[in-house]
Amino acid sequence: MLYVCYDNGAYMNTGIQRSSATPYGADTTTSPAGKVKQGKEQFRKDLTEIMVAHHIPYAAQTVPVIPGTPYMFDLYNKAEKAFKITGAKFMNVLTPCPRGWRCDTATELEVVKAAVETCFWPLYEVENGEYKINYIPKEKKPITEWLKLQGRFKHLLKPENEHIVQKIQEEVDRRWERLLFLAKVK
């Protein structure tokens, strides 16, 4: 069995309620940004790592096919590999929801690309406990590159919310460093 999660970061179908997958600071109908609060106040639950902790034969994190990137076939390659492995397999795919992300449909893949290039959403796989990072950006982009393309994070870019952006950046860095360590890159 291959379990595929298309992670769009909220309960989109019922009207964009925050979920455990919603990123920190995102404006949703149940974590609204306004005068008092500035969106969701918890970091995203790391579903891929939760699945890795189950010690299944294969768990991977990827993105849709984005033409022109070195990771264009990452999704296809991982699905092909997963289908050939016996047992429980898992794939987590960051999937754009233009309605909930409040982004442009024509350029939504640029948003996903920004998630990869900022290391918000690293491309990696864990096969029988062995971590492998499938793409390491030459130069890690600041998290604002991912935030600024989406209406759900618009409020975070106000000068008074700079500390929130910094907090998000620190968490992204921490998770990325941990992944580099687990994959024995560092």
Binding site: Y6, N8, P64, V93, T95, P96, T105, A106, E108
Partner: peptide, 8 residues
């Protein structure tokens, strides 16, 4: 229109 799920 533009939803990422079908392409995945």
């Amino acid at each position: 229109a533009g939803c990422g799920a079908p392409m995945v």
